[in-house]
Protein backbone atom coordinates (compact mmCIF):
# COMPACT_ATOMS: atom_id res chain seq x y z
CA UNK A 1 0.00 0.00 0.00
CA UNK A 2 1.54 3.21 -1.07
CA UNK A 3 1.81 6.26 1.10
CA UNK A 4 -0.75 8.09 -1.02
CA UNK A 5 -3.35 5.45 -0.33
CA UNK A 6 -2.60 5.65 3.36
CA UNK A 7 -3.08 9.40 3.29
CA UNK A 8 -6.37 9.09 1.45
CA UNK A 9 -7.66 6.57 3.96
CA UNK A 10 -6.52 8.77 6.84
CA UNK A 11 -8.31 11.77 5.40
CA UNK A 12 -11.50 9.80 4.89
CA UNK A 13 -11.37 8.52 8.47
CA UNK A 14 -10.75 12.02 9.78
CA UNK A 15 -13.70 13.40 7.82
CA UNK A 16 -15.94 10.65 9.10
CA UNK A 17 -14.87 11.35 12.67
CA UNK A 18 -15.51 15.05 12.17
CA UNK A 19 -19.00 14.41 10.79
CA UNK A 20 -19.84 12.13 13.68
CA UNK A 21 -18.56 14.70 16.16
CA UNK A 22 -20.65 17.40 14.52
CA UNK A 23 -23.77 15.27 14.71
CA UNK A 24 -23.13 14.48 18.37
CA UNK A 25 -22.65 18.16 19.11
CA UNK A 26 -25.90 19.06 17.36
CA UNK A 27 -27.78 16.40 19.28
CA UNK A 28 -26.27 17.61 22.54
CA UNK A 29 -27.30 21.19 21.82
CA UNK A 30 -30.85 20.09 21.04
CA UNK A 31 -31.02 18.12 24.25
CA UNK A 32 -29.76 21.10 26.22
CA UNK A 33 -32.37 23.32 24.64
CA UNK A 34 -35.06 20.87 25.62
CA UNK A 35 -33.98 21.04 29.24
CA UNK A 36 -33.53 24.79 29.34
CA UNK A 37 -36.00 26.63 31.62
CA UNK A 38 -39.01 28.26 29.96
CA UNK A 39 -38.51 31.84 28.98
CA UNK A 40 -40.53 34.18 31.10
CA UNK A 41 -42.25 37.08 29.48
CA UNK A 42 -40.29 40.29 29.51
CA UNK A 43 -43.42 42.32 30.02
CA UNK A 44 -43.02 43.80 33.45
CA UNK A 45 -46.71 44.60 33.77
CA UNK A 46 -47.97 41.10 33.31
CA UNK A 47 -48.81 40.38 36.94
CA UNK A 48 -51.21 43.31 36.96
CA UNK A 49 -52.89 42.19 33.76
CA UNK A 50 -53.26 38.59 34.76
CA UNK A 51 -56.83 37.43 35.11
CA UNK A 52 -57.94 37.11 38.65
CA UNK A 53 -59.36 33.64 38.28
CA UNK A 54 -59.95 31.10 40.91
CA UNK A 55 -58.07 27.84 40.82
CA UNK A 56 -59.96 25.50 38.54
CA UNK A 57 -58.76 22.44 40.34
CA UNK A 58 -57.64 21.68 43.79
CA UNK A 59 -54.10 20.76 44.45
CA UNK A 60 -54.15 17.05 44.81
CA UNK A 61 -51.83 14.72 46.56
CA UNK A 62 -48.35 14.79 45.30
CA UNK A 63 -48.75 18.38 44.13
CA UNK A 64 -47.42 21.30 46.00
CA UNK A 65 -47.07 24.89 44.97
CA UNK A 66 -43.62 26.35 44.97
CA UNK A 67 -42.62 29.96 45.02
CA UNK A 68 -40.23 31.32 42.47
CA UNK A 69 -38.59 34.46 43.70
CA UNK A 70 -41.01 37.19 44.67
CA UNK A 71 -43.74 36.16 42.24
CA UNK A 72 -45.68 34.10 44.75
CA UNK A 73 -47.37 37.18 46.15
CA UNK A 74 -48.36 38.53 42.72
CA UNK A 75 -49.18 35.46 40.63
CA UNK A 76 -52.60 33.90 41.11
CA UNK A 77 -52.73 30.47 42.58
CA UNK A 78 -53.78 28.93 39.26
CA UNK A 79 -50.65 30.24 37.58
CA UNK A 80 -48.18 29.36 40.28
CA UNK A 81 -45.63 26.72 39.60
CA UNK A 82 -46.22 23.43 41.31
CA UNK A 83 -44.50 20.11 41.49
CA UNK A 84 -46.37 17.13 40.10
CA UNK A 85 -44.71 13.77 40.46
CA UNK A 86 -41.34 15.33 40.71
CA UNK A 87 -41.82 17.67 37.75
CA UNK A 88 -42.26 21.40 37.92
CA UNK A 89 -45.46 22.37 36.14
CA UNK A 90 -46.09 26.00 35.30
CA UNK A 91 -49.33 27.19 33.80
CA UNK A 92 -48.49 29.47 30.90
CA UNK A 93 -49.95 32.90 30.74
CA UNK A 94 -52.03 34.10 27.85
CA UNK A 95 -49.17 36.18 26.58
CA UNK A 96 -46.85 33.20 26.63
CA UNK A 97 -49.36 31.08 24.76
CA UNK A 98 -49.87 33.74 22.11
CA UNK A 99 -46.12 34.30 21.75
CA UNK A 100 -45.42 30.60 21.50
CA UNK A 101 -48.16 30.13 18.94
CA UNK A 102 -46.99 33.06 16.87
CA UNK A 103 -43.47 31.74 16.95
CA UNK A 104 -44.29 28.35 15.48
CA UNK A 105 -42.90 27.92 11.99
CA UNK A 106 -46.19 26.93 10.42
CA UNK A 107 -47.97 29.90 11.94
CA UNK A 108 -45.18 32.18 10.77
CA UNK A 109 -45.43 30.73 7.27
CA UNK A 110 -49.19 31.13 7.33
CA UNK A 111 -48.92 34.76 8.40
CA UNK A 112 -46.30 35.43 5.74
CA UNK A 113 -48.35 33.73 3.06
CA UNK A 114 -51.40 35.72 4.06
CA UNK A 115 -49.40 38.93 3.87
CA UNK A 116 -48.09 38.01 0.44
CA UNK A 117 -51.56 37.13 -0.78
CA UNK A 118 -52.86 40.40 0.62
CA UNK A 119 -50.15 42.37 -1.15
CA UNK A 120 -50.59 40.49 -4.43
CA UNK A 121 -54.35 40.68 -4.64
CA UNK A 122 -55.64 42.61 -7.65
CA UNK A 123 -56.53 45.74 -5.71
CA UNK A 124 -53.12 46.09 -4.09
CA UNK A 125 -51.36 45.12 -7.31
CA UNK A 126 -53.17 47.77 -9.32
CA UNK A 127 -52.54 50.33 -6.61
CA UNK A 128 -48.83 49.57 -6.57
CA UNK A 129 -48.62 49.67 -10.36
CA UNK A 130 -50.44 53.00 -10.48
CA UNK A 131 -48.19 54.37 -7.77
CA UNK A 132 -45.06 53.35 -9.67
CA UNK A 133 -46.40 54.76 -12.94
CA UNK A 134 -47.33 58.04 -11.30
CA UNK A 135 -43.94 58.29 -9.64
CA UNK A 136 -42.13 57.63 -12.91
CA UNK A 137 -44.24 60.09 -14.89
CA UNK A 138 -43.86 62.73 -12.20
CA UNK A 139 -40.09 62.43 -12.24
CA UNK A 140 -39.94 62.45 -16.05
CA UNK A 141 -42.21 65.47 -16.36
CA UNK A 142 -40.30 67.35 -13.71
CA UNK A 143 -37.03 66.60 -15.49
CA UNK A 144 -38.43 67.74 -18.82
CA UNK A 145 -39.83 70.89 -17.26
CA UNK A 146 -36.49 71.72 -15.72
CA UNK A 147 -34.70 71.08 -19.00
CA UNK A 148 -37.07 73.31 -20.96
CA UNK A 149 -36.79 76.04 -18.39
CA UNK A 150 -33.02 75.85 -18.43
CA UNK A 151 -32.91 75.98 -22.20
CA UNK A 152 -35.35 78.88 -22.35
CA UNK A 153 -33.50 80.82 -19.69
CA UNK A 154 -30.19 80.21 -21.36
CA UNK A 155 -31.31 81.24 -24.86
CA UNK A 156 -32.99 84.45 -23.70
CA UNK A 157 -30.41 85.63 -21.21
CA UNK A 158 -27.18 87.47 -21.47
CA UNK A 159 -23.88 85.68 -22.00
CA UNK A 160 -23.05 83.57 -19.01
CA UNK A 161 -20.07 81.75 -17.67
CA UNK A 162 -20.02 78.05 -18.35
CA UNK A 163 -19.45 76.44 -14.96
CA UNK A 164 -17.68 73.45 -16.50
CA UNK A 165 -15.18 75.25 -18.70
CA UNK A 166 -15.24 78.72 -17.19
CA UNK A 167 -15.56 80.36 -20.60
CA UNK A 168 -18.21 82.85 -21.62
CA UNK A 169 -21.01 81.57 -23.82
CA UNK A 170 -23.23 83.53 -26.11
CA UNK A 171 -27.02 83.24 -25.83
CA UNK A 172 -28.37 80.35 -27.80
CA UNK A 173 -25.01 79.07 -28.90
CA UNK A 174 -24.89 76.03 -26.67
CA UNK A 175 -28.59 75.68 -26.06
CA UNK A 176 -28.65 72.06 -27.13
CA UNK A 177 -25.69 71.24 -24.91
CA UNK A 178 -27.23 72.99 -21.95
CA UNK A 179 -30.52 71.27 -22.61
CA UNK A 180 -28.85 67.90 -22.70
CA UNK A 181 -26.89 68.55 -19.53
CA UNK A 182 -29.94 69.78 -17.66
CA UNK A 183 -31.89 66.83 -18.98
CA UNK A 184 -29.24 64.40 -17.87
CA UNK A 185 -28.59 66.11 -14.59
CA UNK A 186 -30.03 65.57 -11.18
CA UNK A 187 -33.50 66.77 -10.36
CA UNK A 188 -33.53 69.91 -8.22
CA UNK A 189 -35.07 69.87 -4.81
CA UNK A 190 -37.28 72.81 -5.64
CA UNK A 191 -38.00 74.44 -8.99
CA UNK A 192 -35.98 77.55 -9.67
CA UNK A 193 -37.70 80.86 -10.13
CA UNK A 194 -38.21 82.05 -13.71
CA UNK A 195 -36.59 85.36 -12.88
CA UNK A 196 -33.25 83.80 -12.13
CA UNK A 197 -30.06 85.28 -13.39
CA UNK A 198 -29.84 82.78 -16.18
CA UNK A 199 -27.01 80.78 -14.73
CA UNK A 200 -27.25 77.05 -14.76
CA UNK A 201 -26.23 76.63 -11.16
CA UNK A 202 -29.78 77.18 -10.02
CA UNK A 203 -31.07 74.33 -12.13
CA UNK A 204 -28.55 71.76 -11.06
Amino acid sequence: MSSQNIMVVAVIVAVAIAVVALLVALLAVRRLRQFSPPRLSSDAAWPETMPQTQPSHATGEGERAIAIGDQSAQVPAALQARVVEGRVVMTPTSRQIVDATMGRPLIKASILAHGLAHALRPESRDRIRALMRREYNRSRNQRRRVARQAARTHTTSAPTIDPRTGSATKPGRHAATVDAHAWLGELPQRPSSPGASGRLEGNR
Binding site: V98, T101, M102, I107, S110, I111, L112, H114, G115, L116, A117, H118, A119, S124, R127, I128, R129, L131, M132, R133, E135, Y136, S139, R140, R143
Partner: peptide
Protein backbone atom coordinates in the same frame (compact mmCIF):
# COMPACT_ATOMS: atom_id res chain seq x y z
CA UNK B 1 -36.59 57.45 -12.42
CA UNK B 2 -37.40 53.79 -12.87
CA UNK B 3 -35.32 52.92 -9.82
CA UNK B 4 -37.13 55.54 -7.77
CA UNK B 5 -40.47 54.19 -8.93
CA UNK B 6 -39.35 50.67 -8.10
CA UNK B 7 -38.34 51.71 -4.61
CA UNK B 8 -41.70 53.37 -4.10
CA UNK B 9 -43.45 50.26 -5.32
CA UNK B 10 -41.40 48.03 -3.04
CA UNK B 11 -42.20 50.28 -0.10
CA UNK B 12 -45.90 50.13 -0.86
CA UNK B 13 -45.69 46.38 -1.33
CA UNK B 14 -44.06 46.03 2.08
CA UNK B 15 -46.75 48.15 3.67
CA UNK B 16 -49.49 46.07 2.08
CA UNK B 17 -47.75 42.89 3.17
CA UNK B 18 -47.42 44.08 6.74
CA UNK B 19 -51.09 45.01 6.78
CA UNK B 20 -52.05 41.55 5.59
CA UNK B 21 -49.77 39.92 8.14
CA UNK B 22 -51.27 41.94 10.96
CA UNK B 23 -54.74 40.88 9.84
CA UNK B 24 -53.69 37.25 9.87
CA UNK B 25 -52.06 37.65 13.28
CA UNK B 26 -55.27 39.10 14.65
CA UNK B 27 -57.18 36.18 13.19
CA UNK B 28 -54.82 33.67 14.81
CA UNK B 29 -55.05 35.44 18.14
Amino acid sequence: DQANALVSGAREFGAQMRAGMSVRQAEVA
